[in-house]
């Protein structure tokens, strides 16, 4: 498969990169690892006029451990995150999510920024050019129909990133920069919930880093993922959980997130409220699992039936919570 023609940009520093974004806006696509964008370009799902490579910008890479937070540069590879002792110790679910992205070689190429900003996917959209020419244009391709859910007035494509659910569980923020301005927003707010335009990032902005706040107290976390081939596939559904307990052993706070459940990761807020103040042994796991089920879309648009993926959301959330609680017990 050949790539479509484009002009290649290679800024030497972040200021130059931001200036290029300001100039080219929607006509430029950013690559760092290239594992997402290059693929989409091969399938002609993307044909940008410009491709900007930010992999060589030294100020966007690396893991910084600060007093009150851990900062991940957007170009930090998933392999670095999966192998980082501090991430494994302080934010195990994030390391587990990075470890489970695709295959080791892809994880060594792919970056956290690219993983977060990966496009939503659907079996009727992620096809080769020749297949797509034989299909009517769906919402995601500028049309007015949904090929996955007949009669739907909206896009049912699925966000299948591994990192975002785990990062959201840790209440992580992302740093978005453009020429002359920087804003920091919770990662959950990066998502629009609209499969056609899944992200709220501006066309002149670059995701430059992720901030994971440090939390007080004892915590446990886990990330669980369903996929067919353990060596390569995107999650068909996933669950991340983080649970903190106080000195009295009671749960002080928790965050649970379901991934690949719709066009954006979904926080199971009802579950967090339900277990607040409880002892780990008092938790009604079946009730929490039911909440995850209720939040998961069951469209038949990925490699496994939607009904099965919904059922597995129950199972994975339960497993993620159980494992987080086991971590908590070890920590106490």
């Amino acid at each position: 498969m050949r790539l479509p023609p484009f002009q290649y940009l290679e800024p030497e520093n972040i200021t130059e990169a931001l200036s290029m974004m300001d100039t080219y806006k929607d006509t430029v696509k950013i690559i760092a690892g290239g594992t997402e964008v290059i693929n989409h370009m091969k399938h002609r799902l993307l044909s940008p006029a410009f491709v900007m490579n930010i992999a060589k910008l030294g100020d966007l890479g690396g893991i910084s451990v600060l007093d009150h937070e851990i900062v991940l540069g957007a170009s930090t590879t998933l392999k670095e995150i999966a192998n980082s002792p501090v991430i494994k110790e302080k934010c195990k679910a994030i390391a587990e999510a990075a470890f489970q992205v695709a295959s080791p070689t892809i994880a060594a190429m792919g970056t956290i920024g690219g993983n977060i900003l990966q496009n939503t996917r659907c079996m009727t959209y992620n096809q080769s050019e020749i297949v797509l020419t034989g299909l009517d244009s769906c919402h995601k391709r500028g049309g007015t129909i949904c090929l996955a859910v007949k009669g739907s007035t909206r896009c049912f494509s699925v966000y299948q990133g591994d990192m975002a659910p785990a990062l959201i569980a840790f209440d992580a923020q992302c740093i978005l920069r453009k020429s002359g301005a920087t804003r920091t927003i919770p990662i959950i707010d990066l998502f629009t919930g609209n499969g056609v335009q899944p992200f709220s990032i501006g066309s002149d902005e670059i995701l430059t880093g992720i901030i994971i706040p440090k939390q007080d107290g004892t915590s446990g976390s886990a990330y669980k993922k369903l996929r067919i081939r353990g060596s390569i596939d995107f999650p068909l559904v996933s669950a991340a959980s983080v649970i903190w307990v106080g000195a009295d052993g009671k749960i002080t706070s928790s965050r649970m997130v379901i991934g690949a459940a719709g066009p954006a990761p979904r926080m199971v807020e009802e579950a967090s409220l339900a277990i607040q103040g409880q002892l780990p042994g008092e938790i009604d796991l079946e009730a929490l699992a039911g909440m995850a089920y209720g939040l998961t879309e069951g469209a038949d648009n990925l490699a496994m039936p939607g009904a099965y993926r919904r059922k597995m959301a129950r199972v994975l959330l339960k497993r993620a919570v159980q494992e987080a609680l086991e971590d908590v017990k070890r920590g106490i």
Binding site: M1, Y8, I31, G34, T35, I38, N39, K42, H43, V51, N53, A102, S103, T105, I106, A108, M109, I232
Partner: peptide
């Protein structure tokens, strides 16, 4: 498209998918 690994080469001793590398 980066799934099979046939095109793997080393770049600075790290395996990469040459089909996804410009």
């Amino acid at each position: 498209e980066g799934a099979c690994g046939s095109c793997t080469v080393l770049v600075d001793d790290q395996p990469v998918r040459s089909c996804l590398t410009l």
